[in-house]
């Protein structure tokens, strides 16, 4: 347990040192959400209709931007190699690292998403549902991003390639996430999409670190 905790502490220090990464994600999330009412229509009914897709889209987009720095610095300075040599299981270490990354890039988004939801005239319980949906879906997305950034480590300009790989895999989460938000605003049953998101989250938490670890091993040798 000790090693995992130390790794988490180390990731915290790195995140504090590179605070611009987290801030970039937040600013992007905020700007995308703010731009839509400005450039389309600020009608209340219309905004309530599009809030689900916009939440999911901006969360996806900001994770897309920030994930380029997920493993690259650690790969270049040899941290990943050190982790690989550790006595602890590599998969567990990767899970810790991914979780730490989630805490510093996605958790702030979830916290401010309540504010953005109220810009879109969402009230009451629906705000909490939005935050819950984002919680479930960002945990899945971060695992997919971890895999994608691990597999593209050796490539110099991986931006477009990452998008190409990540979009088809993330699509179900975007669909079901925006459906959950839409249903909660309309007052419909949300258990279906939320069960799906929870299932995907479980699947990605079990499978994700394992696949990411093998992708890192491929990129290393």
């Amino acid at each position: 347990m000790d090693t995992y905790f130390q790794l988490f502490i180390r990731e915290t220090k790195v995140a504090i040192k590179r605070w611009t990464d987290a801030l970039t994600g937040i600013i992007l999330f905020f700007l995308i959400a703010l731009l839509f009412p400005l450039i389309s229509d600020s009608d209340k009914d219309f905004l309530l209709k599009i809030v689900g897709p916009i939440m999911m889209f901006s969360a996806f987009f900001s994770s897309l931007l920030s994930m380029q720095n997920m493993y690259k610095p650690d790969f270049q300075n040899g941290t990943i190699e050190q982790l690989l040599l550790s006595k602890r299981s590599f998969v567990g270490l990767i899970l810790t690292k991914t979780f730490a990354y989630w805490v510093f890039t996605s958790l702030p988004l979830i916290l401010i998403s309540g504010l953005i939801a109220s810009i879109y005239f969402v009230t009451g319980k629906a705000i909490l549902i939005i935050q819950l949906t984002l919680l479930l879906s960002t945990l899945t997305m971060i695992n997919i991003s971890a895999f994608t950034s691990a597999i593209t480590l050796g490539i110099r300009y991986p931006g477009a390639l990452m998008t190409l790989i990540i979009t088809p895999i993330t699509l179900p989460i975007l669909i079901f996430g925006s459906k959950a938000i839409e249903n909660s605003i309309l007052g419909l049953d949300i258990s279906g999409p939320l069960y799906f998101l929870t299932g995907m989250m479980m699947l990605s938490l079990f499978l994700g670190p394992w696949i990411t670890a093998s992708a890192l091993k491929i990129s290393m040798d």
């Binding site: 597999i151 088809p168 895999i169 179900p172 669909i175 079901f176 995907m200 696949i211």
Partner: peptide, 18 residues
């Protein structure tokens, strides 16, 4: 190949969600 395998796992999920 890893990407292809992930796609195979995901294809039914994508299709179902669509």
């Amino acid at each position: 190949s890893l990407v292809a395998i992930l796609g195979i796992i995901n294809l039914p999920i994508i299709h179902y969600s669509v």
